Simulated scan of single mutants.
Amino acid sequence: MIESVRFSLSDSGEVKCSLTLKRFYPQDIKIRWSAVESQTKLMDYDKPAQSADGETFDVTSVFTLPRPLCFPVYVTWEHQSVKEPQSIILNPSDLPWHPQIEELNSPDLKLDTESKIQVRISGYFPEDLTVEWYKKEMGTDRFVAADNNKYRTVISGHQRQSDNTYSCTASLLFTPTLPEDQRSEFICRVQHPSLEQPIERRIGPLQIT
């Protein structure tokens, strides 16, 4: 009966969910959406249309997510062909706009001169993006957060793209010293509501010249 739940993103930044149900009979059906489990809302939808077989019906219901985005989202439908109401729960990880992360650049590290490691991130929505940097400790395989006074994280403003997703450039700024930064290795970790697990990119070992 169910075809799919799809997401779309408008120029104004509205996120819409659409549920398509196919091949049901008779045509009477109820569809409810909610961004809070205890508050359901009966949504308007087009009158069910006849399916290609000419005997059953199809319908699509569209729900605009409240802003700021609020999850989970519940969609429930009732029809006499099923004994109990059927439902789907949508979570942030169901959003299709996952961040796309390029490889970290490979800078020339110069002793006592400020250097920059950069990564471009694109294709994500909403703009709730977290970027963390980690550095491998000398003489170990352990990575620790690069968040002391020596290392500085900079994220450029979130730029709106033609497809209404966002892009940005994340940078780690630091001044290399010896021996701490010779053959240093770094990890950039990106977190976003659409991701079930963070995405990582790694660079190194880097040489100081």
Rank of each mutant, 00 (worst) to 15 (best):
M1C: 04
E3M: 04
D11C: 09
S12Y: 05
S12W: 05
E14R: 15
V15N: 02
K16N: 13
T20M: 14
F24L: 05
F24E: 09
I31D: 05
V36D: 14
E37H: 12
T40D: 06
M43G: 02
A49Q: 14
T64K: 07
L69N: 03
C70P: 00
V73Q: 05
Y74H: 15
E78C: 15
H79F: 01
V82Y: 07
K83R: 08
Q86H: 07
I89E: 11
S93R: 13
S93G: 04
P99K: 05
Q100E: 12
Q100H: 12
E102Q: 04
E103W: 02
P107L: 09
D108W: 01
L111E: 09
T113E: 10
E114G: 02
E114W: 02
S115W: 01
K116Y: 08
V119P: 10
P126G: 11
P126I: 06
P126D: 07
P126Q: 07
D128I: 08
L129W: 09
T140W: 03
R142N: 12
A145E: 10
D147Q: 08
N149E: 09
R152K: 14
T153Y: 00
S156L: 12
S156R: 14
H158C: 13
R160C: 02
T165H: 09
Y166R: 03
L172P: 01
L172A: 02
L178S: 03
L178D: 01
R183M: 10
C188M: 11
R189Y: 01
Q191E: 10
H192Q: 01
P193F: 07
S194Q: 04
R202A: 10
I203E: 08
G204Q: 13
P205K: 01
L206V: 01
L206T: 02
